[in-house]
Nucleic acid binder design. Structure first.
Length: 659
DNA sequence: TCAATCCGTATC
DNA sequence: ATACGGATTGAC
């Protein structure tokens, strides 16, 4: 009985070898493997194509890096199984970027490619490309001449020079319009552009600004919220060079724009820029790497300034775009710090609303002047919810040290992590036995404010329902950080009520993050309007808000991080997992000298239910050894996976949360 | 003497 | 991961 034999395959005549990155989760296989391309697939298998290959006996997905005339591999090559679709997805430039990001974060190429390449949608890929008719662009006067070096940066982008800048936006700045102007300048120079913003609301604003400036069809907005078909359709338009400008959320930092001339990130301190999937890259770093690799210009902008952006400046890698003090004074709100004098407030309504009297008066005046008032309150759950009524020591669980909270229908506080009721609590500092709500949610604040200002319209913007804009009529707009609506004509006043609560967070970045949120809210206030921040005026970041000095604050922050030995002044890696696995890992790793090991410490039990057996270890090296540290960690991970150590160790470079 | 099993190694 | 080869073990 003769079995039907498959027809013998013939390799392509030219460049028969494809170098393929295979999609397997093992770190030691993060390198190219060579396959033969059958003649029948010659056209479909190109540099950047998705393919299916037989690897260790199984069919797996892969990406073709390039085609070559021959292989270095000593043994016979296998034929690759088949191409997936006809559309190459990587460009030489994005392939190099995926490699660089993987190397920076001790991760693998395919992990990063998964972040940067959207899932294929076959029908969309096959559909004829929609013909976009570009409307004539509108010319407007650039708003960049209010800034030192603003015009120079625009000129550099227009001349396709690789300028790199950190931009401190003026309060009230129409930053989406400024970003649109930069993008328009890059397009006019025949180059592409990528702009990254934290969330969908900012994305919509930049999208609208681009539509106004460029007309239809010159750009696309990319975000994860689009359905798979629409997301792939827009992404394909970029990959095919139909559009050259992209605005999007963090994954759009990898968009395969042809010949990018400028890369932009807005509000780089927002934690939404950090990817929560391995290898946990940050969008600012992705753009910095991409700028270095391609020579594209880079713009890091925001009202606030991060220590990381400050380092770009102090290392001389980037230049500053700022306005002078006179220009700033003309547009800035007046900012005062109010100690939390709730108890002394004369007005009973103010007392009931937990408002310091200064804040209450500022709000009343703005409302009387016919203007809206912004009230920023922290998100519920952002900080421990109960504290000692006398000295505000956060109330913690006696068993697991988790934060205590008051349940909805319970009379007794209980732990939010372990759920145990906290009967008989006593303050560890003053032995007081009374707790009070440290932070009141937006809903409750809105209720109380409504009573404090009878007859005033109260609106809320937060997690569940985010308002994009409010009109210029008098109203109290209660919002959580990041959800503040833009007010027509600007707010008459802003009350930042969460000051000390925000600063009380046991986090390395608490100060920087508090200032960032305050500046973002205060920037929405009209020139000369009143901002009241409820915090101790002696705290440096409170001073930085009062003087509107994000640069000075970032400089101080960076100096402090240098002194304490924290990123970005040094490079750190956090290794977490079961104790034996973490120990085994660090023993196997050939870490660059000098290095410092901190820990291991047990990781805090969390409501998300992480392994209670888990520990975390920090490794610290000088900044210039960052690449070597990542290489060593990758090698250690490869060694472990090669010898079948299955216990997972999570590697995070420069973790955002250090405590 | 042969099969079952363990361990190490390569995966193109 | 998974597949394979070579060494090792154990039973006839």
């Amino acid at each position: 009985m003769t079995r039907p034999r498959p027809a013998p395959r013939v390799a392509a005549a030219v460049d028969p070898v494809a170098r393929v990155m295979v999609d397997v989760p093992l770190p030691h296989l993060d390198r190219p493997f060579d396959y033969l391309v059958a003649a029948e697939f010659d056209e479909q298998v190109q540099a950047g194509s998705r393919v299916r290959v037989r690897f260790a006996g199984r069919l797996v997905d892969g990406y073709v890096l390039d085609r070559r005339p021959s292989s270095e591999h000593a043994n016979a090559l296998a034929f690759l199984d088949r191409p997936i679709g006809v559309q190459p997805v990587l460009t030489d430039e994005t392939a190099a970027l995926f490699r660089a990001v993987a190397d920076r974060y001790a991760g693998s190429f395919v992990d990063v490619a998964r972040l940067g390449v959207p899932p294929r949608h076959a029908r969309t890929e096959a559909a004829p490309p929609t013909v976009e008719v570009a409307r004539t662009a509108r010319t407007v006067h650039s708003g960049w001449d209010r800034y030192h070096a603003g015009g120079a940066f625009m000129a550099a982008v227009g001349a396709a020079r690789p300028a790199r800048a950190v931009w401190s936006a003026l309060p009230g700045e129409d930053w989406p319009a400024r970003i649109a102007e930069v993008i328009q300048t890059a397009l006019a120079a025949g180059r592409g552009a990528v702009a990254i913003v934290p969330d969908g609301r900012d994305l919509a604003r930049v999208d609208a600004a681009l539509l106004r400036l460029l007309g239809d069809g010159r750009h696309v907005a990319l975000s994860a919220e689009l359905g798979p078909a629409e997301r792939y359709r827009r992404w394909l338009a970029v990959r095919r060079g139909v559009v050259q400008a992209v605005v999007g959320t963090r994954a759009a930092g990898y968009a395969p724009v042809v010949n990018p001339g400028v890369l932009i990130i807005w509000d780089d301190g927002d934690d939404l820029h950090r990817e929560p999937r391995a290898p946990y890259p940050d969008a600012r770093d992705v753009l910095v790497l991409r700028s270095s690799l391609t020579g594209a210009a880079l713009l890091v902008g925001g009202y606030a300034r991060t220590a990381e952006a400050q380092l770009l400046l102090e290392s001389g890698w980037a230049h500053e775009i700022t306005a002078d003090r006179g220009t700033l004074r003309a547009v800035a709100p007046r900012v005062v710090a109010a100690g939390d004098d709730v108890e002394q407030a004369r007005d009973p309504a103010a007392r009931a609303a937990r408002l310091p009297s200064l804040a209450w008066r500022a709000a009343g005046k703005a409302l009387a002047d016919g203007q809206p008032v912004l009230v920023q309150v922290p998100r519920r759950g952002y900080v421990p919810s109960l504290a000692c009524v006398r000295d505000r020591t956060p109330a913690r669980c006696a068993t697991c040290a988790g934060p205590l909270a008051m349940g909805s229908a319970q009379a007794i506080a209980s732990c939010r992590w372990c759920g145990r009721p906290a009967g008989g609590w006593a303050c560890p500092t003053c032995a007081g036995r009374k707790m009070r709500a440290l932070v009141v949610g937006a809903g409750r604040t809105a209720e109380e404010l409504g009573r404090a200002f009878p007859g005033t319209l109260v609106r809320t913007s937060g997690r569940d329902q985010v308002l994009d804009t409010v009109d210029g009529r008098p109203a109290l707009v209660v919002s959580t950080p990041g959800a503040e609506p833009v007010a027509e004509g600007g707010y008459g006043a802003a009350l930042l009520l969460d000051g000390w609560a925000m600063l009380a967070r046991p986090d390395l970045r608490a100060g920087e993050e508090a200032l960032r949120r305050w500046l973002n809210a205060a920037a929405l206030v009209c020139p000369g309007g009143q901002v009241v921040v409820v915090a101790d005026a002696g705290i440096p970041v409170v001073q930085a808000l009062v003087r509107w000095d994000p640069a000075g604050s970032a400089s101080r922050e960076l100096a402090e991080r240098s002194e304490l030995g924290f990123p970005p002044a040094v490079r750190m890696a956090a290794l977490s997992g079961r104790p034996d696995a973490v120990l085994d890992f660090v023993q196997a790793a050939e870490l660059p000298a000098p290095h410092e090991m901190i820990g291991p410490v047990p990781t805090a039990p969390s409501p998300t239910g992480g392994d209670s057996e888990s520990v975390r270890m920090l490794i610290r090296v000088p900044r210039e050894d960052g690449a070597r540290l990542a290489t060593a960690l990758r090698a250690a991970a490869a060694g472990r996976s090669a010898r079948k150590a299955t216990e997972l160790v999570k590697i995070v470079l420069d973790p955002a949360e250090l405590f």
